[in-house]
């Protein structure tokens, strides 16, 4: 028996909205410690990693490890049927071929339940090594979203250059060039609005904006986003999922032709 109840059900809605355009299907691995997901996009350029700790749920029970293959656009459609303030419970029996979703309004006057078919998926899990990154930038997630959107007007790629002074995002194309520089915040009165650069070594890397724009769909999940970079390795774009865990996107760099 698997059951996970989340009073802040809107987190599920936001999480699905964050990944459903990048991934068509994925396995939710449920165990006694929580729910994890790892999946590559269809082009194998990026990878999504989700971790939700059992402690972060209001009720959590998982008697046997369970791998639920889910068609994400379908789950997203069902999640859209939940109100923003609803409590969401996900349930499955062992060896089930369906998952149940129960949406309760805060005042308990409305309860909806949906059942969705699971799918057979055979995906490979990649080992992601623990890495010390040369640069870690924390910034408002809305700012990151805005920068990716704006620079997409100019080109397909963004060059991210990080030094101890700050971080610079640049794009160029037929119509010209654009540069957006963010300096490290002088004061950190409002933690959510701060730009913080933690740098061991300056880096300059190129990434496809198309993917960063997909990642930025996670903006409603968290006020801050964290970018971790080292030379010649994938960028990590991390959004915290409240007290539950994290949503991380890994993006392979582009190299000069």
């Amino acid at each position: 028996m698997f059951e996970a109840r989340l009073v802040q059900g809107s987190l599920w809605k936001k999480l699905l909205e964050s990944i459903k355009d990048l991934l068509n299907e994925a396995i939710f691995d449920c165990s006694s410690t929580g729910i994890t997901l790892q999946a590559m996009d269809s082009s194998h350029v990026s990878l999504v990693s989700i971790s939700m700790n059992s402690d972060g749920f209001d009720t959590y029970r998982c008697d046997r490890n369970l791998s639920m293959g889910i068609h994400l656009p379908s789950l997203s459609k069902i999640m859209k049927c939940a109100g923003n303030d609803d409590i969401i419970t996900m349930k499955a029996t062992d060896d089930a071929d369906t998952v149940s979703l129960v949406f309760e309004s805060q005042n308990n006057e409305k309860v909806s339940d949906y059942e969705m078919k699971l799918i057979d998926l055979d995906t490979e899990h990649l080992g992601i090594p623990e890495t010390e990154y040369s640069c870690v930038v924390k910034m408002p997630s809305s700012e990151f979203q805005r920068i990716c959107r704006d620079l997409s007007q100019l080109g397909d790629s963004v060059v991210i250059a990080c030094t101890k002074e700050g971080v610079k995002f640049s794009a160029s194309g037929e119509l010209g060039t654009g540069n957006i520089k963010l300096c490290q915040s002088a004061s950190t009165d409002k933690e959510e609005e701060a730009v913080v650069v933690d740098m061991n070594e300056a880096v300059c890397l190129t990434f496809a904006l198309r993917y960063l724009n997909f990642f930025a769909k996670a903006t409603p999940l968290s006020a801050q986003v964290q970018l971790s970079m080292s030379k010649d390795v994938p960028l990590v774009v991390e959004y915290k999922i409240s007290e539950l865990g994290f949503l991380r996107f890994y993006l392979a760099p582009k190299i000069e032709d």
Binding site: M40, H44, V45, S46, L47, E124, H125, L126, G127, I128, P129, D156, S157, T206, A208, V233, P234, Y250, L251, A252, P253, K254, I255, E256, D257
Partner: peptide, 14 residues
């Protein structure tokens, strides 16, 4: 295309 690397070339399959 255009020098885009694959994520699977960085992370190993166990």
């Amino acid at each position: 295309p255009h020098g885009q690397m694959k994520i699977s070339s960085f992370f190993s399959s166990p």
